[in-house]
């Protein structure tokens, strides 16, 4: 192993900033670019204060200027309903967001953005429209059943966002992966409830990815960064005990792809 964990010394307290970093590039403006073996990238206003190469440990110290975290942007989907599912005959609308940690950023460009709906193994392209300054997908009326919808934005770093939509009241057992290059798949049940464990699997081109960091957050978090960081086991699985209200968002980055899955609580 030749990568290191990078820690940030903030007011005398060391915080793990990024795991398994294999590229560090200091810039002239006093910032440092970090890239991990998982493809995660960050830019921080900091200086290197210690490098313990035997222990694979690098310590940075925050410079007086505010920390700049140019994190990889993510795209994600949220159904426009207050109780997590739709009924037959209702307009099925989803909102598309781009940002980080479930916090939308500014100026979401539709360039290279595509959306698809998959029902019973049949995939169809669906339009993404701009509406009152935000992006949305209006599927119109959908038949009773389960629908998986995903968005993809191609570029130097490819982005995916996926959600499972329920039309009517359905159990989500046995959901099939869509075969995305990087995909989070619910292990047994695609929506879960507060106070329960929720398990999922991360697949890259259909194969489980072991040892990958999965970030998890929830609507309305006060945390600037993801409040939960999980790690997939040998079968690419990870789980979390759900302690927050509202929808959860899971995000993984692997080889220049960032993929999210929105866990929708349904009532």
């Amino acid at each position: 192993m030749c990568e290191s964990n990078v820690y940030l010394n903030r007011a005398g307290r060391e915080e793990l900033l990024m795991e398994r970093v294999d590229r560090i590039i200091p810039a002239e403006d006093g910032s440092i670019f970090l890239e991990s073996v998982f493809g995660e990238r960050r830019v921080v206003k900091a200086r290197i204060v210690e490098m313990e190469l035997v222990r694979h440990r690098i310590v940075l110290e925050e410079t007086p200027e505010a920390m700049v975290a140019e994190r990889i942007q993510e795209i994600w989907l949220e159904p426009a309903t207050d109780h997590g599912h739709f009924h037959e005959g209702e307009e099925v609308i989803l909102r598309v967001f781009k940002g980080y940690n479930m916090k939308p950023g500014d100026g979401f460009s539709r360039d290279g953005l595509e959306a698809f709906a998959v029902a019973e193994g049949v995939k169809r392209a669906v339009p993404v429209q701009e509406r009152q300054g935000s992006l949305e997908i209006n599927l119109g009326q959908e038949a009773d059943g389960l629908l998986q919808v995903y968005v993809r934005q191609q570029g130097e770093h490819e982005l995916y966002g996926k959600v499972v939509l329920e039309i009517g009241h359905h159990h989500h057992h046995g959901l099939q992966p869509l075969g995305l290059p990087l995909e989070i798949v619910p292990a047994g049940y695609s929506h879960a409830r507060l106070g329960e464990n929720y398990e999922f699997q991360v697949l890259a081109a259909g194969e489980p990815v072991a040892g990958l960091e999965v970030k998890a957050t929830y609507a309305g978090t006060h945390h600037r960064d993801y409040p939960h960081r999980l790690r997939t086991d040998d079968n690419g699985r990870a789980r979390i005990f759900l302690t927050a209200r509202g929808n959860y968002l899971f995000s993984v980055t692997h080889k220049n792809i960032t993929s999210t899955f929105t866990l929708v609580k349904s009532y």
Binding site: H169, R193, T243, Y267
Partner: peptide
């Protein structure tokens, strides 16, 4: 709301916060 909430969800809904 058209599904039964879990007990803990129902309690939080009633109380307003966790």
């Amino acid at each position: 709301m058209c599904k039964d909430m879990s007990p803990v969800e129902a309690a939080i809904q009633f109380h307003g916060h966790i």
